[in-house]
Design a protein around this nucleic acid. Structure first.
Lengths: 133, 133
DNA sequence: TCTAAAAAGTTGTATATGCAACTTGGTGAC
DNA sequence: GTCACCAAGTTGCATATACAACTTTTTAGA
């Protein structure tokens, strides 16, 4: 029973924790987490997007999404009508831009350090895992 | 700014959510989650292991680990002395065995469905991500 | 052996997440 | 039009996770 370190899910979760920590370090300078920054950046790109769309795209359960967005709203980054489509406030837009700048730099560096073969591996893995469902 | 779906961390988190859901379905029949089952199986294999070791191995922050274990203890699967090394109760051992059986079947099927190339990709990715730190 | 520093573990606080059950909103059949 | 249904969103409850600050335990030196 010494084979449990070959657990696909366990491995994915571990890697997720590690990279999350890495990205959070950067976003902390803007006072947000990676999860929050991701939502902000999505909403910047697709103004008016519905929760259900984000939920499906990111594979986050709708109730979790609802709460994540409420948090952003409490921080003044979303307008009031979050049930009719999501829109960033001016402050939210400015924050999204700053986050994107940091994200781009970090993500580029990470992709480079991982190497194209590892990144390709991730793409393949993504495809196959999504096909499991 | 439509490049955010190329986020390494975002991707890892999404995949983590998906596979976690898949594994949780199986473990739910034993009344535990994947996270809990993983800890039970580890402790079964290495009786007396310290929290700090699990924490490093699984890359889970020590305070999170502390609480995860307290939960298992409240359920009667761990003996009292969790500060001096972790030991499963008889019930905990029986549960760990049942979990391992389910895990082995599911993980084998998942590895097969993913294919060796994708699994190899995950191994490479693991290596590279751990090297980032 | 005693003590000071390091490591291990816990607790406060907060976010991220899921499932179940509920409410609200929209849409089509009639 | 309205009613019945389905999709979208929310809320209750629970787990998983991190950081900071604290307490306890261990370990190294003198």
């Amino acid at each position: 029973m010494t084979d449990i370190d070959r657990c696909i899910a366990g491995r994915m979760r571990m890697l997720s924790r590690v990279v999350t920590g890495l990205y959070n370090e950067t976003f902390a300078e803007e006072g947000v987490t990676l999860a929050q920054a991701t939502l902000l950046m999505y909403m910047f790109v697709v103004p008016g997007v519905r929760q259900s769309v984000l939920s499906k795209q990111l594979m986050i359960e709708k109730s979790a999404m609802s709460r994540d967005l409420q948090l952003l709203q409490r921080n003044g980054w979303l307008t009031d009508s979050i049930r009719k489509g999501l829109f960033l406030t001016d402050e939210g837009q400015a924050l999204a831009k700053r986050c994107h700048k940091r994200w781009k730099a970090l993500n580029g560096a990470v992709r480079e350090q991982l190497g194209t073969d590892a990144v390709d591996g991730l793409d393949l893995l993504t495809e196959r895992i999504l096909a499991l469902r």
